[in-house]
Design a protein around this nucleic acid. Structure first.
Ligand SMILES: [Zn+2]
Ligand SMILES: [Zn+2]
Ligand SMILES: [Zn+2]
Ligand SMILES: [Zn+2]
Lengths: 134, 134
DNA sequence: TGCCACACGTTATAGCATTACGCAATTGAT
DNA sequence: ATCAATTGCGTAATGCTATAACGTGTGGCA
């Protein structure tokens, strides 16, 4: 029941993501970790799978890339719905949680008797900084 | 200003999507159209790009696949935000438009001064039929 | 005629993800 | 202690998704 400690590979991958400015693809992570002994994509994907299970990492579907979770909430518990604002210019990702969205989506699914397993919300656009810079 | 007619390739791809039960990957479309002279992925991707510009086709990011638009609205005009409910069992996709979601997302972006270009919403789960069948 | 825009065809390549196999360490009975 | 089951790890091979780069042909138009 106690949170199992992360393995060496999982820590390496998580650190790579945490230290990055923006989302990283699995192959970019692989390249960053070659010096630490990584040689094959599967080492990255296996670590990512576990980290996602634990809620420490999210996958951005529209980017085929991954980010570390930035929310301080308990990672044991369910995240609920997460929305991402992704800047096309600087790559910055903002993780957002909003009860209103969650509620509205729940209604949409409800009227259709659709059982939701996982919801993806990704907003592509330009962050405040990059908009200001024109 | 008049809507330009679709090219032969675009019609073939659109028909393939319209006739399909669920979303199709670009390579699946390619295979379906080999008999009609298609030989390379680019033929499919180019048609898909155009069809998406015209609002006739949507890309499902979480699936790397494409569906024909099922909404009867004018395709010249902007779609607004589209949400998809995707059944993991039967592959059926339900295209949804909801002002509530749109409004809430707009607020989320607004407070961050984030300029939205494109929004992806995809709900993965089980449709009514497949839930009933257990 | 010369120019431009656009769709098309082909080949090659890049980028993302998984399958399959085998080994080692751990755990938890029997 | 021994066996079986689980889990993580390493490696190689493969498969799926998408784009780059090049050239052709056609129609509109100055
Ligand atoms: Zn998170
Ligand atoms: Zn930015
Ligand atoms: Zn549509
Ligand atoms: Zn279904």
């Amino acid at each position: 029941m106690a949170t199992q400690p992360l393995t060496r590979n999982q820590i390496l991958v998580l650190d790579a993501l945490t230290g990055a400015e923006g989302p990283l693809s699995a192959y970019t992570i692989l390249d960053k970790l070659r010096d630490h002994g990584f040689r094959a994509p599967l080492q990255v994907y296996r670590a990512l799978d576990k980290l996602r299970e634990l809620g420490l990492v999210h996958r951005l579907e529209s980017l085929n890339a991954f980010v570390a979770c930035t929310q301080p909430h308990d990672h044991h518990t369910d995240h609920g719905v997460t929305a991402f604002a992704i800047c096309e210019d600087c790559g910055q990702v903002d993780e957002m949680h909003d009860a209103g969205i969650e509620e509205r989506l729940s209604v949409l699914a409800g009227v259709r008797h659709f059982k939701t397993e996982k919801t993806t919300i990704e907003i592509r656009g330009h962050c405040q900084n990059c908009s200001a810079a024109e």
